[in-house]
């Protein structure tokens, strides 16, 4: 049974985002890979061929594109695939130690899955969480940010209980509800955009 055989509405939705042409069909390649990986954890050769047929190309092309991007997997990952950002901004916040800690506590090397099938780890490059470093991403889901040693241990314990905590999304709030920014000293300074009226749609000149 092919993966997409019973998913016509999904396919129709994905293909509808791109032009109705051979090139447009090919554009669906990445969304389809993502779809399969999220469902099965990795993309097998059989799935590559299936996606190739859907996109009007060959398995070679699918494998080529897939291998180019770092978040697609050809082998199954653990139930919790932990991706640790290792780029400088996180490294300045201790991500190297975080990584060493994870690898030793979980007893798993990159590319492997822990004996209980729960964990796999991957060093990744900048996740865009430099202000809330260090950061760990769980699978194709959210980030855990400001991961201190204690937070890391709490996270591991929760995952061992198969109770992953909801991802963090700490938003750096610098503009207050009145529209003015607050300095580090706690002063509200500047003006508020709320006090400025949008120009009238009819044109102001």
């Amino acid at each position: 049974m092919t993966y997409f055989a019973d998913k016509h509405p999904l396919l129709a939705d994905i293909f509808s985002r791109y032009p109705d042409s051979p090139q447009g069909r090919r554009s669906a390649l990445m969304p389809l890979l993502r779809e399969v990986q999220n469902a099965e954890g990795f993309v097998s050769e059989a799935r590559m061929r299936e996606i190739a047929d859907l996109c009007g190309t060959t398995a070679t092309e699918v494998r080529s594109v897939m291998s180019f991007y770092s978040t697609y997997h050809t082998l199954p990952t653990g139930r919790y695939h932990l991706q640790v950002c290792s780029t400088l901004m996180c490294a300045l916040a201790g991500s190297d130690e975080l990584w060493d800690h994870l690898v030793s506590v979980l007893d798993v090397q990159p590319g492997d899955v822990s004996a209980d099938g729960r964990f796999s780890v991957q060093k990744v490059e900048c996740l865009g969480s430099c202000g809330t470093a260090p950061v760990v991403q769980l699978g194709d889901e959210g980030y855990y940010e400001n991961v201190t040693r204690q937070k890391c241990d709490r996270l591991i314990a929760a995952l061992r209980q198969d109770a992953p905590p909801p991802p963090d999304n700490p938003v750096p709030v610098t503009v207050r509800e009145d529209g003015r920014q607050m300095t580090a000293a706690g002063e509200r300074v500047g003006a508020s955009i709320h006090d400025r009226k949008p120009l009238p749609a009819g044109g102001d000149r």
Partner: peptide
């Protein structure tokens, strides 16, 4: 950013 005439707009609603 502390200029009394400056009002943040891009990030005015973030958060």
């Amino acid at each position: 950013g502390k200029d009394p005439r400056f009002a943040p707009s891009l990030y005015a609603h973030v958060g």
